[in-house]
Design a protein around this nucleic acid. Sequence first.
DNA 1: TTTGTTTTCTGAACACTGTTCATTATTTTC
DNA 2: GAAAATAATGAACAGTGTTCAGAAAACAAA
Lengths: 204, 204
Amino acid sequence: MTVANRKQREKQEMRTLILDAARSIFLEKGYDLTSIRNIAEKIEYSPGTIYLYFKEKDEIFHALHEEGFRRMIMKMEPLQHVAEPFERLKAMGRVYMEFAKENKDFYDLMFIIQAPMNMEEHEKWKMGNQALNFLKEVIKGCKKTGRFKGKDVNYLSFTIWSAMHGMCALFCRGRCHAYEEENIDPMTLMENGYKYFINMLEKI
Amino acid sequence: MTVANRKQREKQEMRTLILDAARSIFLEKGYDLTSIRNIAEKIEYSPGTIYLYFKEKDEIFHALHEEGFRRMIMKMEPLQHVAEPFERLKAMGRVYMEFAKENKDFYDLMFIIQAPMNMEEHEKWKMGNQALNFLKEVIKGCKKTGRFKGKDVNYLSFTIWSAMHGMCALFCRGRCHAYEEENIDPMTLMENGYKYFINMLEKI
DNA sequence: TTTGTTTTCTGAACACTGTTCATTATTTTC
DNA sequence: GAAAATAATGAACAGTGTTCAGAAAACAAA
């Protein structure tokens, strides 16, 4: 065990410590109220210290951004066992929506907030692309069973993703309240929105 | 012309002055870079003055929020002349999407940004509800021609709105870049996403 | 026109934000 | 133990929304 090794390990531990604090504040108070000073106070270090482990605030949130995708991908893991492609696609939509409902802030960070995506480097969305590729693969599977004939996989994946994202984004940003006059709560709205969309997918 | 009248008019003129400055900065630099001090500097008043005409920053952006809806509704005006309900619905989707593409920042403010929607009062979304009701009316028209049989107007309106919003929101927040690896630009993506969705609507 | 009152405006101050950097403290190496 | 390297600090900078005592301007009455 060389000194360099320990140092490296300690560096990693510190990053984890910062990330844990950031996550806990982020999940409790949301993105806007998670400041460097807040995080520093939580781990009992000075604000400046954080910049010895992360280049900027965005880097912290990009780490959480990736964690969000890991969580989502984990939640999708069981879908591998759904043999029939279209059944898998439908289940995927369900899981996606459930993830958004249960992890509002993570979803926000992953698909709505601009911050951790600012940089030009497409590297930033590696995890997102992985998830998107998973969707495309499932669609390809569907095509093999004769579904979605004549439809382009890229465009169709975007259509499906958009439909799901639309509901989740309206939900996350409080626009579902538009239906409160009709006494329809956001959960019922999303449940039925999903059903209707699946219904459309079946007939395309 | 009483003095009180003139004073009231001057008050209104000042509000307009502030709003004009706010809009110009907002459309040029976006929401985050539009600060009270920026606005104040533009109209050559002190920052404190603005608070004599608007209770808080949100009130300014709520005014712009409403303006956005007025613009969108104006853009939808010609649709009244499209007689066939389903044709009108399709055209509506087109206009909605075009509005988002041409007025990225307004769209963001209207449907994504949380800020001007914070307050509990549903009053805040009067304009939004008006637009949503217009959509529902068009759907009702479609139902009268035998379309969307057995489908609930509220749920279906949400499904359609979500699908359109999903594409626009992914566009506004730079998530369309996910398809750059496949050499598909955001515009092509949205164009085809729209086509595919309409195709689904036709078959539901 | 001058005085007194009311309205309008200012800009410093408060409590925040992300980020930098000279200084201080700790640890490692020789 | 002294010297060198590494780590941590916290004040400072430039910015944010918002408030409010005091100054300035507009108005009303004498």
